[in-house]
Design a protein around this nucleic acid. Structure first.
Lengths: 210, 210, 210, 210
DNA sequence: AATGAATGAGAATTCATTCAT
DNA sequence: GATGAATGAATTCTCATTCAT
């Protein structure tokens, strides 16, 4: 932990370069040079260029998922948990812009299709997000704070799409709204879209009613 | 118009290969061979491999934007126009899966950052989407059918993010909900999120009141 | 002669482009476009890209040689003829900078080695210069105005080298002396180097005699 | 020093092939094959085909300039130094025909115009020759052994032109005089052209004295 | 004479990976 | 663990030339 290990130096440099120039436009020679190590050292630690990428990816997603899962467990009620989750998402990305840009820019094209062990496993890790969202939605339905008008699974899929799409557009500069504002906008609209019908919660009977 | 020109043959083959294997994993040699033309012909018509990509992209986005703009102009009221727009979006993509997959998988990494005239122009074209959404939202506010709880521009940005994120996840198989179902889910939630407050539309007075 | 024929338009454009960018860096497509003709037209008139080059070369060298030969015949005495020749050389090049730059920059590398008819013939044309210089030197020896200290042929070779080398360095900007000044410098030194020994013209013995 | 490094093998092969066939007609594949290395190794060491050329050029010119500068410093008097310089020039080229042919045939067309750092720097190196000649001329003027009838700078420019032009014509076979004879011819004429006026060396006052 | 779409044989360059030290 | 010279397969792009119209 004390020694600024070569391993970490490589990951830091690679994160930055991947984010700045994209995975394909970053050469292993550059990474090695900027990290102050020999090119061979990259291979000692990570086995391949893909290995470097997947390590960055895994470490980040794991951290994110752990944070998200903790929040989902803590919430007092479904609506609150969803709010927390949305806020956490945008805060976390705000603080990890570089590393997330890597994923945003390069993941799907390169490793999204291959099915060799590690990259498949990495992708799976991300899918846990849908599970977490489903969980929170179910909780909300049960405690009456959320009233999805479509099946849980589809609603969770929608929420993932909202989080991903808005984050991506903002980070790539396609829209002007910054992440911090986006957080409030997304939270506001999601809660409204999932809000109980006007009459009061008791009147709704579809599913999860007494 | 009748002759299946070499130009079109190239674009068709390239669309398919890019969608199947990704831009980087498709070689110009393959495109030429499958299109039954010489490799030089690719360069005669499109100047570069990027040129082929951008041509596919431009033609598709242009078609999409024209369709979207027409709908936005036709709608009877704001909420109706928004519904139409959302349906059109998912229908259009359903019918142009291949070509859109190309964009989904490869666009940002490759050309999103470069600023050489053509790719910059291409990206601009895409930004018209935010304008259209803003227009429809404004219309809805004026005719009282939509009640955004956040500024128009941020709301439009959110809608773009929703459309993009959900479409992407579905097309890449990250979520299981198919585009057709997604269309209804997105439409339902968006309308609800933008629905007038329970009290009645007449209470709102900001703009467009009597 | 009245119609600005396509043929001439092509030669003019090609001269300029070859001079500006070099033969290898000028494409037939560029020549055709700037001359306002189709690429095929180039081949109708000149058969090949080399053909364009050799035509420019031949026309220029022929003009130059005709001028040089006329002067050599006219001179009142050898020294005078040599002076005229030197002045003519620099004046002619000053007036035909572009076309000469073509030769300066590209001739040897491309066609200097091949021995297929036309390019060999073209090169021969240039060799007439050594003959003219030899002629003038002989004339000067006979009329007592020039006293070469080395065989005529070697002296002529030297003069050619002087003319070529100084012209080249000046036109390519390797030295700062402009052609006009160079003309006087070369003339002055050549006449001095070939001047009769101090004692008088009749006495001419080897060189540097007491 | 003992190991015939791959780097040197590449340079040797490239020198020979460039001289034999010209730069443009020599492929990197050929160089690699004949040098017994992989094509990538060329790029590992020299970065580009141009890089190989410029390395050959630099090493040769540097060697030449060092030799010339040493001679210029050693001479007992100006005329003697000039003689030494001329002899050195032709001897050096005689011994480095191959490498010089490369420069003679290809340099100007290819890199003479581009201004990307390295090639510009290379050309500069060559310009030192004018400085050396100026130095020697100045020395000769001061010690009374040389009497240029034109400004030093122009005279130096002329000398460079003579050396270049005669060498080139001889090496390319445009004239029949071999380098060894040329050496004496050039030396003889240059000294005569720069010789003191008949009146006597002691009187030397600037030039153009009454 | 003129056209210009089509050609296709090259050529330079890239770069992740290996392996002897 | 660390090195970095060497690799070589793979790929995009060039451009003079042809020929059917």
């Amino acid at each position: 932990m004390g020694e600024p290990s070569r391993r970490d130096a490589i990951l830091d440099v690679a994160s930055r370069l991947f984010a700045e120039k994209g995975y394909n436009n970053t050469t292993t020679a550059e990474i090695a040079q900027e990290a102050g190590v020999a090119e061979g050292t990259l291979y000692h630690h990570f086995g391949s260029k893909d290995g470097i990428f997947l390590t960055i990816f895994d470490e980040m997603v794991e951290e994110y998922m752990v944070g998200a899962e903790r929040l989902a467990g803590e919430g007092t009620n479904g609506a609150g948990a969803l709010s927390s989750l949305i806020r956490f998402h945008f805060e976390y990305l705000e603080q990890n812009k570089n590393r997330f840009l890597v994923i945003l820019r390069d993941f799907p094209n390169h490793l999204a299709t291959e099915n060799d062990g590690r990259s498949a496993e990495s992708r799976n890790r991300f899918r846990r997000m849908t599970d977490i969202l489903s969980l929170v939605l179910t909780q909300g339905v049960n405690d009456g704070t959320l009233h999805p008008s479509f099946p849980i699974r589809d609603t969770a899929a929608l929420l993932r799409g909202i989080l991903y799409g808005t984050t991506r557009h903002s980070m790539l500069g396609i829209i002007d709204t910054p992440l911090s504002r986006l957080s409030r906008v997304v939270e506001g609209y999601c809660l409204k879209a999932l809000s109980p019908p006007p009459g009061g919660k008791g009147t709704r009977r579809k599913r999860g009613t007494k």
